[in-house]
Amino acid sequence: MAIIVKLDDLLHARRMTLTELSERVDITLANLSILKTGKARAIRFSTLEAICQALACQPGDLLTHQPDGDTQ
């Protein structure tokens, strides 16, 4: 998908585990894992807000657009 979720990088920078984030944002570990691995089809604004609040970041820090065909 052209939208890349950089949750892993953000968690690493803040020395936070996915389980800790799951407890803070009240979203199941399974769902956060889906989001982290880029398997999610969509993200709710409420989820985005909760993650941004927990990680003290902007939505743009979490998501990035990579045009199709580009390699990372």
Binding site: I27, N31, L32, I34, L35, K39, A40, R41, A42, I43, R44, T47
Partner: peptide, 12 residues
């Protein structure tokens, strides 16, 4: 409806 549900299932 089935397609909408599939979309909703992938929504976090």
């Amino acid at each position: 409806g089935a397609r909408m549900r599939a979309d909703l299932e992938g929504t976090i």
